[in-house]
Lab assay of single mutants.
Amino acid sequence: KITVTFNGEEKARRYYKKMQKHNLKVEIRVENNQWVVHVE
């Protein structure tokens, strides 16, 4: 499981979509004013 933190929504969403293309289970959320993407 990987957790990647971004300081911008745009970058986070781009990464999220990229990971989805690989058929990975991805989850995006905001934690402590940071955009966090969890990849299983």
Rank of each mutant, 00 (worst) to 15 (best):
E9M: 11
N23R: 08
Y15E: 02
N7W: 11
V30N: 12
V30R: 13
V36W: 02
G8D: 15
W35S: 00
Q20G: 04
K18D: 12
V26W: 01
A12W: 05
V37P: 00
V36D: 01
V36E: 04
Q20F: 06
T3I: 12
E40P: 05
H22Y: 09
R13Q: 07
H38T: 15
K18H: 15
Q34L: 13
K17Q: 13
W35Q: 00
E9V: 06
Y15Q: 02
K25M: 08
E27W: 06
F6R: 01
L24H: 11
R14T: 07
N7E: 13
K1L: 10
A12K: 01
M19K: 02
N32A: 07
V37R: 00
H22Q: 11
I2A: 05
A12T: 02
Y16G: 06
I28Q: 00
V30W: 12
E27V: 09
E9D: 02
H22M: 13
Q20S: 08
K21M: 11
A12L: 04
R29S: 11
V37E: 01
R13H: 06
R14A: 14
W35Y: 04
V36S: 03
K1G: 15
K25I: 11
V36K: 03
E10A: 13
R13L: 13
R29W: 13
V39W: 05
K11C: 15
Q20K: 14
L24E: 03
E40D: 09
N33M: 06
H22N: 09
E27A: 07
K17R: 10
L24Q: 05
I28D: 00
Q34M: 13
T3H: 06
V36I: 12
T3F: 06
E40N: 10
A12S: 03
N23P: 02
R14P: 01
V4T: 04
M19W: 05
E40L: 13
G8V: 14
V30P: 04
I2F: 15
W35A: 01
K17G: 05
R14W: 11
V26G: 02
K21S: 12
T3N: 04
K11F: 11
E40V: 11
K1F: 13
R29H: 14
R29K: 12
K1M: 13
V37F: 01
T5G: 04
N23E: 05
K25A: 07
K21Q: 13
R13G: 02
K21E: 14
H22R: 14
Y15K: 02
F6Q: 01
N23T: 04
M19S: 02
Q20E: 07
E31M: 08
K25P: 04
H22T: 09
I2W: 15
H38G: 05
N7I: 08
N23S: 07
Q20V: 12
V37W: 00
I28Y: 01
I28T: 00
